[in-house]
Structure formats: structure tokens, C-alpha cells
């Protein structure tokens, strides 16, 4: 895989501290302050033998290209179509998803929570941004925002409404607070009229937000 080049950073970051529009650049554009601090960290830690640049590339490649909500969607689609799998998932999600190759690199424990007519589950991390990375990838910006982290606990129905989700009054809303040790995956309700669909077709109905609880699965 192509390594991030810092030249790319110069081209893609719009607000550079060294931004001349009126003359040709005699030198390479200066990256932002945090970008330079990260360069400094990387240099020092490499000099000390504490990091391996190839391992960094591998981690970035994994999270950019190989891990994402399709992993979680596969778990959900299988839970919808295979009762034995579903039972095993709710018994020990960590073991089941590890068997599928979706293991937590940070050693976290995975828990699956199921939406029903009676209960709708939503996941947050009020501390920082704990998230089931192996199943959903890197969290979206809003998941990490103060607005979501603070408000979803206080007024989950109002937050859901902003995501376009209105639940029946009799459906209880349960908010799960992720930690460094426990990450939650919401198993959304299977949409009606999907009995004839196979696992691959079902996967396409499972959105990222439906597995966080801020959305519902798509209708076919």
C-alpha cells in the first residue's frame, strides 16, 4: 500500500499556515502544527525502536480499507437468518465474531443487543469514543461529538428524531455506554417482507447507523 506522504497533506489541507497564493512555491508547503508534531513523535519513537513504520502502515490500511460496517452487517444478516448463530451471538458475541475473524485488537469484550418491538437500543461512549472497531470501523464524526455524547443519554428520542427515527411511544429506549472493555453492537429489527432474501441481500439492508441504534435497517 502507498504510504501517506506528507506532500499529500500539503495538497489536501485547505488552511495551511504557509499559504501563498501570489507566488510560486520555492519550497514544499508547510504542514499544519499538529501534523508536524505527529511527524516529531513518529521520528522519536522510530529512533527509539518503539514503533515500526511498516506496522503503522498496516494499521492505517486495515482501518481505511479492510474494516468497516460490512463486517457488522455480515453478523447482523447471519443473526437474522440463522437461529443457532443468533443464540450463540447473544450468549457470547466476542467468541462468535472472533471466529468470523473480527477480533478486537484492544482486547475488548463484544456484546450484541437486540432491537424488538418493545426495546430500541442505542450505543454511545460518554467517556470518549469507544466503538466496536472490528465490526464497524472508525466511528463517524458525530459519534465523537460532544453534542451526541451528551445528549443521547439525556434525550435519546430527540436525538433519534434528528436522525429521522421516530419510535412508537410504547417502545422503550435503552442507551448503552461503551467502555474501553465493553463495546456494543445493535442488532436492528429485520425489515418485513425479507423472508426470501439470502444473507448477501440482507447485508445490504444493514446500515452503519442501524448497528449504532441511530437508524433502522433499510426496507428492501
Amino acid at each position: 500500500m502507498q504510504r501517506w506522504t506528507w506532500l499529500q497533506a500539503c495538497v489536501t489541507i485547505p488552511l495551511m499556515p504557509h499559504d501563498h497564493a501570489d507566488h510560486s512555491h520555492p519550497h514544499t508547503l508547510l504542514p499544519s502544527d499538529p501534523a508536524l508534531r505527529v511527524k516529531a513523535l513518529e521520528t522519536l519513537l522510530t529512533q527509539k525502536g518503539l514503533i515500526d513504520p511498516a506496522a503503522l502502515d498496516e494499521i492505517i490500511d486495515t482501518y481505511e480499507n479492510r474494516i468497516g460496517p460490512r463486517n457488522g452487517a455480515q453478523v447482523v444478516a447471519r443473526a437474522w437468518s440463522d437461529p443457532a448463530f443468533r443464540e450463540a451471538l447473544f450468549e457470547d458475541a466476542t467468541a462468535v465474531v472472533t471466529q468470523m475473524g473480527f477480533y478486537g485488537r484492544q482486547g475488548e469484550h463484544m456484546v450484541a443487543v437486540e432491537n424488538t418491538d418493545a426495546v430500541h437500543n442505542i450505543v454511545v461512549c460518554t467517556l470518549c469514543s469507544c466503538y466496536p472497531w472490528p465490526l464497524l470501523g472508525i466511528p463517524p464524526g458525530w459519534y465523537k461529538s460532544d453534542a451526541y455524547r451528551a445528549r443521547v443519554v439525556r434525550e435519546p428520542r430527540a436525538v433519534l428524531a434528528e436522525f429521522g427515527v421516530t419510535l412508537p411511544a410504547e417502545t422503550a429506549v435503552r442507551v448503552w455506554d461503551s467502555t474501553a472493555e465493553v463495546r456494543y453492537l445493535v442488532i436492528p429489527q429485520r425489515p418485513p417482507n425479507t423472508e426470501t432474501l439470502d444473507e448477501a441481500a440482507l447485508m445490504d439492508l444493514v446500515t452503519r447507523d442501524s448497528m449504532i441504534g441511530t437508524g433502522l435497517a433499510r426496507q428492501p
Binding site: S32, E42, L50, Y63, E64, L127
Partner: peptide, 30 residues
């Protein structure tokens, strides 16, 4: 996934140092 290259880089350094055992993820999260 990452808006800027340095986001990816600092993320990867942190995950890597956790994996080599320099700190636990719980210490990091706190």
C-alpha cells in the same frame, strides 16, 4: 475514514504502542 493524514498517523501510532504493550487501552481511554 480519516479526514487528514495526520489523524490516521496519530491513530496508528497509538494503536501500535498499545499493541506492543506500552499502555493498556483502558489507560488510554481514561
Amino acid at each position: 475514514v480519516f479526514e487528514e493524514p495526520w489523524h490516521a498517523q496519530v491513530f496508528a501510532i497509538t494503536v501500535h504502542l498499545n499493541e506492543t504493550g506500552l499502555f493498556t487501552w483502558q489507560q488510554w481511554a481514561e
